[in-house]
Each structure stands twice: as C-alpha cells, then as structure tokens.
C-alpha cells in the first residue's frame, strides 16, 4: 500500500469512529432514563425565545431519523445547546476549558514519557537484578495509587509543609502587574496538579517501555550484535531503542484514554478549571448538555491524537502500512 492510501484509510477509520461516538451520544442521552433532551426544556431558567430556538436547533418535533441527522450535523459543528447552569452555549464554555486542560496534560505527559523511557531502559537492561525489581516495584506502586488520593495527599502536604496553592489556576481577586507575575502565579498553581498527574502516568510508561525493550532484547540480531563485540551503550542506542520506540508510539496513543481519566481526577481535586473539573461540576448540577459536550470533545481529541500517532507510525515504519 502506498503511504497516501494508508493515510487515507486511517482518516476514514477515524471519521467512522467519530460517527460512532456521535451516535453513541445521541442514543445515550435519549434512551436512558430521565431523557435529558426533554430535560433541556424543563429548565426553569429558559425564556420563551430560547425554548423556540432549542426546538429549531434539535428538531424535536421531527421523526427520529431526522433528529439523528440534525444531531450529527450539530455535533460536527460543535453545537450542543445551552448549559443549564451557565445559560451559555456549551461550545463557548468548553473551548477555554480545553485550553486550560492542555496546559496541565501536555507537560505532564511529556515529562512522564521522558522519565518512563529513562527508567524503563535501565530496568530492561538490568533485567531480573535489584535495579530492575526496585524500578518495577516503584512503577507498579505509582500505577496503583488512586489519582485523586495522591492529589489529596499533596494537598495535605501543602497545608502542613509546602504551603503551595492547592486550588484553582491563578489567585483570585488580584490583578497581575505584567505577564511575568501572571506566569509566576500560574506556575505556582500548576506545580501540585502537574506533579500528581506526572507521577501517576510515569509508572505506566515505565512498565510499557521496559516490556517493549525486553521484547527487542530477546531478538536474535541483538545477540548477534553482542557476539560481534558491540559496546552496551552503542547497542542500546543504535539497535535496541529505535526498535522499541516504535511500538511505544502506538501504545502511548492507545493509553491516552488513561491520561484523560487521570486528568479528570487531578483537575477535580485541585479545582483546576479544565474540562475534567467542568465534568465534575456538571455531575453535581445535573447539567447534561455540558456533560454531553465534554464527553464529545474529549472523545474526538483522543481519536485525533490516535490518528496522528498512526500516520506518524506509518511514516517511521513502512511495514505497518500493509
């Protein structure tokens, strides 16, 4: 298969997945008890004009298949109606929240991957001895820690010793003199959630890296290279790592769902104003339009990230195109 047709096939699969997500959302919010779509209209805060606008937008007087088509187009345009609580368009609420989430998730994931690679390589190379067992034990321990509990532990630590901010993204009620004081404030709020999320993800990435490197190290060509007298560092750098890195790309992409789950819990504990905290607040307030929109935007982001990983993988390793 040529690279262009491989990319095309991946794009098509992603589109189908997004369609499945939309249908899933459509039926979930209509079939389950309580019928949240009808609930849209029971919102006492709505004016007559808003109700008419909603009726037109969702076409609720039309047959089900037409409602579905309208829903698909609305979803693709990012149109999820009005939030019960904020009485604003769900889309307008979601966009800034998504950016706040990325500010937390991106550095946490990158740091966790780098640390995971470092210790994963070390563990794989020292397989079975004390270094390996202790790295493995620590990684599995971190992997077992409930994210929200680890976050709470940092809050307790901060109350008694660290005295770092334990909630929000910036200090409330102060106006920042310039961009630097703003960034400084932001960073001090970022530290605890960032450390929490990074530690939880680190365990997972280390185990993945170790196992995928061990798989490579048992290959015959590694033994051959060793027999020829290649130095250990050169062997790892030139032969083992590049081959172990490839499966890492797709495994990281598949595990993005876990990253998102961890972020939701971390944001909740630290009151970080991202999509995750928005979901928590929406649950408390029974704000279904927000819940629906947040799930959709998260799911689509994960699908797109997987698409990028697949395209990258196909470029780096031509074998997977077939």
């Amino acid at each position: 298969m040529r690279y262009s047709s491989y990319v095309l096939k991946r794009v098509a699969i992603s589109l189908v997945t997004i369609l499945i997500i939309i249908s899933f959302n459509f039926f979930l919010f209509r079939i389950l008890p309580g019928d949240p779509v009808r609930l849209l209209f029971r919102n006492p805060n709505l004016t007559k004009e808003q109700i008419d606008a909603l009726n037109r937008k969702f076409g609720l007087d039309k047959p089900l298949y037409e409602q579905f088509l309208i829903y698909v187009f609305n979803s693709l345009r990012g149109e999820f109606g009005l939030s019960f609580f904020y009485r604003k368009s769900v889309f307008d609420i979601l966009v800034p929240r998504l950016i706040n989430s990325i500010v937390l998730i991106l550095p946490a994931t990158v740091i966790a991957i780098l640390l995971g690679m470092l210790f994963g390589v070390l563990a794989a190379w020292r397989r079975g001895d004390r270094v390996d067992v202790s790295i493995l034990a620590v990684s599995m321990g971190l992997y077992s820690i409930p994210t929200f509990w680890l976050g709470g532990m940092f809050i307790l630590l901060s109350i008694y010793y660290l005295h770092l901010p334990i909630g929000g993204m910036v200090t409330h009620g102060i106006t920042h003199q310039d961009i630097f004081s703003y960034l400084e404030d932001l960073f001090s709020h970022l530290i605890l959630p960032l450390v929490t999320l990074t530690l939880v993800l680190y365990g997972q990435f280390t185990i993945i890296m170790r196992n995928s490197l061990i798989d490579v190290l048992t290959e015959d060509y590694i033994q051959a290279a060793l027999a020829k007298g290649l130095s250990v560092s050169r062997l790892l750098r030139k032969h083992a790592l590049p081959n172990a890195m490839l499966p890492m790309i797709s495994i990281i992409a598949i595990n993005l769902g876990l990253v998102v789950g961890g972020a939701v819990l971390t944001e909740t504990v630290f009151n970080w104003p991202g999509v995750g905290r928005l979901i928590y607040d929406a649950i408390l307030r029974r704000d279904y339009p927000i819940l629906q929109g947040a799930f959709y935007i998260i799911a689509v982001s994960v699908v797109l990230a997987n698409l990028i990983a697949d395209i990258l993988y196909g470029f780096l390793d031509p074998r997977v195109r077939y």
């Binding site: 979930l28 309580g34 769902g257 939701v264 649950i283 629906q292 799930f295 699908v303």
Partner: peptide, 14 residues
C-alpha cells in the same frame, strides 16, 4: 481508545 473513566462517569451519572 475511548477514555473509559469519562464514559463511565457519563453513563453512571445518567
């Protein structure tokens, strides 16, 4: 691929 926890939250909440 789906974020399982988020999906669980949405379905369990409903």
């Amino acid at each position: 691929v789906m974020p399982a926890l988020v999906l669980m939250i949405v379905i369990a909440a409903l």
